[in-house]
Amino acid sequence: MLHIKCPHCGMRSQNEFSYGGDATVKRPELNKEISDQEWDNFVYNRKSLRGKHLELWQHLSGCRQWIKVERDTATHEIFKTLKANEDI
C-alpha cells in the first residue's frame, strides 16, 4: 500500500486517495482553434512512461484536493508531491 504525502494533510495511506492519471496532459484552452491531433493527444494519447511519472491523485477521503505526485512507475518510489497549482 503506497504512502502518499498529501501537501495539505501529510502522510496518508493510499486507500484515502483516488488516482487521476497523467498530470502532464494539459487541457486545451476553451474556445481555442486546435487541430484534431492536438485534441486527440489530450483526450486519448498517453506516454505512460516507465520511470518518473507525474500524475494526479485526489485525496478523496481526506481534504478532497487534487494533488500532483511524481512517482516511479517501476518501483513506486514517490519523489515528490505537489499541490495542484504547483509545478515540478
Binding site: 500500500m1 493510499q14 497523467d22 505512460s48 512507475t73 517501476a74 518501483t75 513506486h76
Partner: peptide, 13 residues
C-alpha cells in the same frame, strides 16, 4: 491496481 505501473508486482489493497 489502479495507477500506471510497470512493476509486475501488485499491492495488497
Amino acid at each position: 491496481d489502479g495507477y500506471n505501473s510497470y512493476a509486475q508486482r501488485g499491492n495488497l489493497p
